[in-house]
Amino acid sequence: MLSARPVQLDGQRGGLGGLSDRLRESIRGSLALGVDEKQRSLVRGIVLGEDEGLGEELRDQFRASGLCHLLAVSGQNAAHVVAGVLLLARVLGVLRVLAMAAALACVGGYVAAVGWQPSVVRAAVAGMLAVLAWLVARPRDRWYFMLVGCAFLLAVSPYNLADPDFQLSFAAVAAVFVLVPRLERFLAGYPVPARLGSILAVATAAGIATAPLL
């Protein structure tokens, strides 16, 4: 039998942990602007991985439709942060070196705000390596980026190997690398628009690889 007393907060963390907490709180507050309560819960789920505010019914519907992965922070989010910063910098005409530095800072801030989850760290490592490769004019290899992320996470804690987030993340990414080109070639033989074909290929590859784990 497990019993617990109410938790009482005595203070806040200091140092980097405290900085992460304040950053997260700041983003949480900003996400509440201009939206109603249900939308707020949803956007906090997608941006920060917090789905506590969603009603039971809507959460069940996300699960039944196969969309519940959107309510958890994924590595894709970190990749989108890098891409978004670079796009914004290009629109504003910022020097590419500065844009890359801003992308590194933003992805670091995002990882700090959402927490050191394996999928996010994997994508952040890949994004940072891609930026560094460009800065020092070295070739880019996505398998290498993925494996460095894997090695980093296992060096931090070998127990990550047993973490479902770790397993799902690497299974999905490896499947995307291996299966998507093949599926896209297969779909090219059918009257499917290229963009839709790409979406279907990614969803199918990720679905096949993660189904045994789910």
Binding site: S26, I27, G29, S30, L31, L33, G34, V43, I46, V47, R63, A64, S65, G66, L67, L70, N77, H80, V81, G84, Y110, L196, I199, L200, A203, T204, G207
Partner: peptide
Amino acid sequence: PLFSIGANALAEPVVVPILGLGLLAAGLA
């Protein structure tokens, strides 16, 4: 989920804009 692929294909176009607008709001606030 049996309709996962179709659901993801329907949802995909708005996922990145939602994340982008959310982070833009956080940056602008």
